[in-house]
Simulated scan of single mutants.
Amino acid sequence: MHSIKNNLASTINFEQLRTFALVLESGGFSAAAERLGLTQPAVSVQVKQLERRLGVRLIERVGRRIGPTPAGADLMAELPQVEAALANAINAATFHSAGVAGRVRLGTGGTGCLYLLPPVLRDLRARHPLLNIIVSTDNTGRLIRRVEDNTLDAALVTLPVASRALAVTPILRDDFVALCQRGSRRWPAEVTAHELGALPLVKFAAGASARDIADDWMRRCGRASPPVMEFDSVEAIKAMVAAGLGVAILPKMAVTGRGHSAELDLRPLEPPLHRTLALVTRNDKPVSKGLRQVIDAVVAAGKETEAAAAAGDAPSGRPAA
């Protein structure tokens, strides 16, 4: 029986599996055909061939809609592992190729995407023009799940990371700072939660790791304060503060160096607050030459950014008038 199953698996056409999955994901044979650039009969034939090879019906029509049979549902549940295994096998083989090429899927939060990655990606493109780096932005929780599912090769996230499936490389300690419109307030050298809690706060939208960290700090200091405005974009928050519509707590990386704005005054927090950014990959992920180049470049950029901040190279804002 074991040999029969092995023979069956070895003759399954991966394109048929992909077509079967796309029919269910897109809601019909015609929609799948359009996405694949095939005719609807050609898609139907691929699914029927797969059903005939497996000896079981995979798709059924329920009313006006189609859905998986119990066998089809079980097959769909296993397909992510099949795709991950194939991607790992390809990565393992291409690791031995002469040049750095292929595709690397990198995830990051919005702040890292705006203020850490641009020079990294520019340098990688100059050195490895055949390397295709696809960058996705999301919050830390979803990025971790996508690395675990192997839909991302690596991700830049905020610690802590509890997953045992992931290798974690801390790359950057990023302090948080308070900011206001330049000249609008007489702030002390360090700003407390008590002072911030009495002011209109512009915050990240709920679910962002930076929002959670800042809110936890405010609560620990006894000043939970609702926002007057919420944004997904750090640049939108900076623009609102620069317009005098509120104050904010942001990662220092977002408002110094590349993110520096002459319209903002910055202050350290008291007690101090920071986050640690880390690069995560799956423990069992074969590291291709392309992925190795990306990992090394991101880690180096994080260390350089941290060293520059520690040395005081980045502007920190002058006292308000």
Results as ranks from 00 to 15, higher is better:
105 R>Q: 08
113 C>F: 08
110 G>S: 15
132 N>V: 08
124 L>K: 08
142 R>F: 03
131 L>R: 13
132 N>C: 11
136 S>I: 00
118 P>G: 11
98 A>T: 08
93 A>P: 00
103 R>Q: 14
115 Y>A: 12
123 D>K: 14
106 L>C: 07
129 P>R: 14
105 R>C: 01
110 G>W: 01
135 V>T: 15
110 G>D: 13
123 D>H: 10
145 R>E: 13
112 G>S: 09
128 H>A: 12
146 R>I: 00
143 L>G: 12
124 L>T: 07
101 A>Y: 02
109 G>E: 07
138 D>R: 05
143 L>P: 06
108 T>H: 05
120 V>F: 03
143 L>I: 02
98 A>Y: 03
145 R>S: 11
107 G>Y: 01
132 N>P: 00
103 R>V: 14
119 P>Y: 06
112 G>A: 08
135 V>I: 12
129 P>Y: 11
136 S>F: 01
124 L>R: 10
92 A>P: 01
129 P>A: 15
121 L>C: 07
98 A>S: 11
116 L>N: 06
133 I>H: 04
125 R>H: 13
137 T>D: 03
112 G>E: 03
130 L>R: 15
97 S>N: 05
124 L>S: 09
115 Y>M: 10
122 R>A: 15
131 L>A: 14
109 G>R: 04
143 L>C: 09
140 T>D: 07
104 V>M: 01
109 G>V: 05
105 R>M: 04
126 A>G: 07
141 G>N: 08
104 V>R: 06
93 A>Y: 09
113 C>W: 03
99 G>N: 12
97 S>C: 04
132 N>W: 01
114 L>F: 05
139 N>D: 13
112 G>M: 07
115 Y>L: 09
106 L>A: 10
111 T>P: 02
138 D>H: 11
123 D>W: 04
102 G>F: 02
134 I>W: 03
100 V>K: 05
114 L>A: 15
123 D>I: 02
112 G>C: 06
111 T>G: 07
94 T>W: 03
106 L>M: 06
131 L>S: 14
128 H>E: 11
140 T>A: 12
92 A>K: 14
130 L>W: 04
111 T>A: 10
140 T>M: 05
136 S>N: 08
115 Y>C: 11
146 R>G: 05
117 L>Y: 09
115 Y>N: 12
112 G>N: 11
118 P>H: 13
120 V>E: 02
97 S>R: 06
116 L>D: 06
101 A>T: 07
138 D>G: 10
95 F>M: 13
130 L>K: 15
127 R>E: 06
127 R>A: 12
136 S>Q: 11
93 A>N: 08
108 T>F: 00
143 L>F: 08
